[in-house]
Design a protein around this nucleic acid. Structure first.
Lengths: 338, 338
DNA sequence: TTGTACGCGTTATCAA
DNA sequence: TTGATAACGCGTACAA
């Protein structure tokens, strides 16, 4: 772990010169000195001490990626391919831009913010935020924040959000179901907030646009916690007898439901049609292959990271609402009826 | 962002005293001073600057998690639920122990090590290492390293590895297949190194233990890259006509293969039996549900992080070969024949 | 073109 | 029980 000071000593010059060469401020240094220093740097395999640099410059080159976990979904959250896929997109972008990525998972917003300030992170990527207060707290921190898939934040206008055309995508898929002749269509989700609410709204609007009335009981609420998911699925399967199609808020739930149907001898799509949302591995590998709404998760991660870095560098303002497009992927789980 | 110095000024005392209170070195401070400082700290919401602390103490409290990506598997790596699940286990453990987690993905070992030294990370978790030189390079770095799922590293004895009874698990599953009456059993994998080799060895040994000869062509090599996976799967499906069962090196491949079989009208398990390895979401949700070898991925992550932290704290030595147990999970993809 | 000296926030040593 | 002060490694005015 050699330091600049030591290098300067051994080379019989000042730390400034060494530092200048390291940072390519070559205009001020004589060619032979540059040569000499560069040779030496390579030889001793110099690596800067980032803590010292951070301290001196008051920046960290760290981008924090905070997942706000919800107690009832924690285990789901981390087996969800979505998370690793988005991490992939984020990490790649961050690394290529010369930043570093620190991950923090917590259900406590205050804790997340403490972590952020103690490390003096240059910017924050926030995923899984739902409640208004969470963001409100964060307003006293001055560093840039980019949210991912966040809705319903009061005063959201201060924050950039990278989202998806959730409502539109779900509207289109529901419209497709209706075009296929379905009129009794349920909506499956585990809550009515944020992304799920947007997708639900799309579903409901499509219903209304086609003169189909929505009833309370058309909302199928799944209990995502491990201990309750089974019985929850059983109950829903019973209730589904009154429907010809189910619009699911995610591929995960769509596939879980289809597995349950399989166990009960209900045939998809002959007995009931299923549509998902996300287009991930689960739905692609399931048979019959899942008809679903596609989103590009990796790109979402990349875009979030890119946007944050631009804000950090002052290239763009801190308030952009971006919605990535969706696309219907018609496969084999929706049947045309009549 | 208030500093200790400012606090000391405003309280009219020295930084030492403030620092002592912060660190609970209360034996040396008078009760009323403690009280006064603590009140103030709470009031101003003091957060330490970790860079400064790192610099002063020459430790970072950072644990690096480096994924060594292989070019041909990169996209797989990051959609694999395995990765997010293990990250979950690691992050939780690290956070609870008061450390921080930094993630770095690269195919270049030297780059990983540079990253590690520049941040002065206290310890390194290494996943995806295959080649000997990778580790050998790392030997010049003095900080503790814990590998995950690493085999075939020469001089592995210097490193702790958290692994799995891969060979035993695969032996047992193959034995189960044989007990079910299968004798023509293929093995599906994308390579013959590390974990995959260990599993293959278990398979082969089980064959031999039962007097079944292994032939070169019984090894089904899948090409994992997106562009080739389809044709690769098609070819394998053809070849599988000569077999009654296929032992797959992972649930992912097992499910991919079953999807292909479905498309070709081949019935699992009636026409052919399939066994997987990992017991992840994919296999659990597939129908027929996958018979597979269970491993506890989250626990693997936790154990890796716990072990690393113990080594960092000097509680245990740096050389432990740990193998987590496996367990057969018999579901519906293997048929008893005859 | 090169060197000196200081500041970043914290901890640690030693003296008062 | 408390307070000065040095040290950690780096970047950078400013001086030479």
């Amino acid at each position: 772990m050699i330091t600049i000071k030591e290098i300067a000593q051994q080379l019989n010059m000042s730390t400034t010169t060494v530092s200048n060469v390291i940072h390519g401020k070559t205009g001020e240094v004589s060619p032979q000195t540059i040569e000499r220093v560069e040779q030496f740097l390579k030889k001793v395999d110099y690596v800067p001490n980032i803590s010292a640099r951070n301290l001196a410059q008051n920046e960290s080159k760290i981008i924090g990626f905070a997942l706000k976990a919800r107690a009832d979904k924690y285990s789901n959250l981390l087996t969800d391919p979505f998370v690793s896929e988005i991490i992939g997109g984020i990490e790649e972008t961050i690394r290529k831009a010369g930043y570093f990525m620190m991950i923090y998972i917590s259900s406590d917003t205050a804790e997340i913010m403490r972590h952020v300030s103690t490390w003096n992170v240059d910017g924050l990527l926030l995923f899984g935020m739902l409640d208004d207060d969470g963001i409100r707290v964060s307003e006293k921190y001055k560093k840039p924040i980019v949210c991912i898939d966040t809705y319903s934040i009061e005063g959201l206008k201060h924050f950039t959000n990278i989202g998806l055309e959730d409502e539109k995508g779900c509207f289109q898929m529901t419209q497709y179901l209706i075009d296929c002749g379905h009129r009794k269509i349920a909506f499956l989700s585990d809550n009515m907030k944020g992304v799920d609410l947007a997708r639900f709204t799309g579903y409901k609007n499509a219903l209304e646009a086609n003169g189909i009335e929505f009833h309370e009981e058309d909302f199928f609420k799944i209990l995502p916690h491990e201990s309750q998911v089974e019985e929850s699925l059983n109950e829903l399967a019973q209730r589904s007898k009154n429907y010809t199609a189910i619009m699911c808020v995610s591929d995960l739930y769509a596939v879980m439901l289809m597995s349950k149907f399989h166990d009960l001898g209900v045939k998809v799509p002959d007995d009931i049609s299923i549509a998902g949302f996300d287009d991930n591995l689960l739905g692609r590998l399931h048979r019959p292959a899942l008809t679903t709404v596609h989103q590009n998760v990796k790109k979402k991660g990349q875009l979030a990271a890119e946007t944050l870095i631009k804000i950090i560098k002052g290239k763009i303002g801190a308030s952009n609402q971006i919605q990535l497009p969706t696309r219907l992927v018609i496969r084999d789980t929706v049947k045309k009826i009549k």
